[in-house]
Design a protein around this nucleic acid. Sequence first.
DNA 1: CGAGGCCTTGACCGCGGTCAATGCCCGTGG
DNA 2: CCACGGGCATTGACCGCGGTCAAGGCCTCG
Lengths: 191, 191
Amino acid sequence: MLVDSADIMDAFFERYRPKLTETAIGLLTPNVKVLHYPKKHELIKTNQTSGYAYLLVKGAARSYYLHNGTEINSWFAFENEMVGSLRNYNNLPSRETIELLEDSTLLSFNVNGIKPLMAENIEISNFINQVIGEYCLYLEDKLFYTHLRSARERYTALLAQEPNVFKRVPLTYIASFLGISRETLSRLRAK
Amino acid sequence: MLVDSADIMDAFFERYRPKLTETAIGLLTPNVKVLHYPKKHELIKTNQTSGYAYLLVKGAARSYYLHNGTEINSWFAFENEMVGSLRNYNNLPSRETIELLEDSTLLSFNVNGIKPLMAENIEISNFINQVIGEYCLYLEDKLFYTHLRSARERYTALLAQEPNVFKRVPLTYIASFLGISRETLSRLRAK
DNA sequence: CGAGGCCTTGACCGCGGTCAATGCCCGTGG
DNA sequence: CCACGGGCATTGACCGCGGTCAAGGCCTCG
């Protein structure tokens, strides 16, 4: 690869520099790796308990689960977003499969190695706290903006808030994410 | 009140004894108070930024917001549950009003006093971490069990998982929580 | 006893799902 | 290079779930 792995990790840590001091970064580094995977690679599989979380450096991913034999997409992620299973983090099997939508570059975090560090290093504890807290706010928003809204409202909201989803994700996937059928999404787009 | 305030706080801390040592409890205590409020009292109001979170010792509460002029209930809480606004915790205005459904006994937590303690005491940090993490899992479950499900499925799921809701909360409130109209809930109950 | 909450029941209808056919784009092989 | 096949999106016909509107029953409380 042309891009140096160390550069990618440095860039990541730099984003959190005010919060993570050299000590914390030193503890984290052995538990972080740079990885490259092709489109369709599955980072986490349904019913499995993975010991890893990932940061999407370049590329895109989706999370889906099976419902009555069809795939339901629960989220999409792009550059600079964390992807992983919160249930895995809490030692529960994942309900979802996380699959890459494009050839991607990732940072992998060894959760089993990092968790014990939380008890001894407060910066790492607060860092993970923050990632989970932000995800929690995202989930609250998602519930708030979907509950009781019509298909059209959910569609226009997604279009306004995450237009890039429509550029990089097949409409079939977006439909189940919005909780509507392919056909309805098609009709909404036709205006 | 017949019940001693100190007893209630002791009972709460005892639940977390394996995690909270005397040191942590000593730091928390000045920021915790026992309160009694009557039915209909509002703990947190829409658009306000409250500095408090609460543990419901005895009683019941609901959280609701206004949508097109009607109240939409987002959750109900009972004994031994934390109630508060995650958005408030992150210094954002609450979208919801939290109101007591019954005369209640609560522990109030002064968030502005406790947050600084997270930087110096890792037990407190992990304790709050855990509360938010559990809420996050609850939100994931709620999305998973409501997305793409019919009114009947959501109704029977709630009946199975939280039957006490139907004993202590008016049906009108439950309907908007389930994302259906009063009338539909009535018809579902009639079987 | 009357008033107001709260829940139920009935009539109607529109949103959005299913099924099926058709169109479009792209990769692969003859 | 074109032909064919498969994946993805669109369009049309139909219909059922669940919403709205309106009326009626049944509590509780003043």
